[in-house]
Simulated scan of single mutants.
Amino acid sequence: MTLTLEQLAEEALDLPSEGRALLADRLVESLDPAKDGYVRRLWTAEVRRRLDEVRADRVRTITGDEALERAQ
Results as ranks from 00 to 15, higher is better:
Leu13Tyr: 12
Asp32Gly: 03
Glu18Arg: 01
Ala45His: 05
Pro16Ile: 01
Leu3Tyr: 05
Ala67Arg: 09
Val59Asp: 00
Ala24Trp: 10
Arg48Asn: 09
Gly37Lys: 11
Gln72Leu: 05
Thr61Ser: 11
Gly19Asp: 06
Leu13Val: 02
Val28Ile: 13
Thr63Pro: 00
Val47Leu: 14
Asp14Gly: 10
Glu46Cys: 03
Leu51Ala: 13
Thr4Trp: 04
Ala24Asn: 13
Gly19Met: 07
Glu69Arg: 15
Ala21Ile: 07
Arg60Val: 14
Asp25Leu: 15
Leu31Thr: 10
Leu27Asn: 09
Leu15Met: 13
Leu8Cys: 08
Ala56Leu: 15
Ala45Asn: 14
Arg48Val: 08
Met1Leu: 06
Arg60His: 09
Val47Tyr: 14
Arg50Glu: 01
Gly19Glu: 14
Leu15Arg: 15
Thr61Phe: 02
Val39Asp: 03
Glu69Ile: 04
Met1Pro: 03
Leu8Ala: 07
Ala45Phe: 04
Glu6Pro: 01
Leu5Thr: 05
Leu5Phe: 13
Leu68Cys: 02
Asp32Met: 07
Leu3Glu: 10
Arg60Asp: 10
Glu66His: 04
Gln72Thr: 06
Ile62Gln: 06
Glu53Cys: 15
Thr4Ile: 08
Val59His: 01
Pro16Met: 02
Val39Asn: 06
Arg48Phe: 05
Glu18Phe: 01
Tyr38Ser: 09
Ala56His: 11
Asp32Pro: 01
Leu3Gln: 12
Glu10Pro: 03
Thr2His: 09
Leu15Asp: 14
Leu5Arg: 13
Leu3Thr: 06
Thr44Ile: 04
Thr4Ser: 15
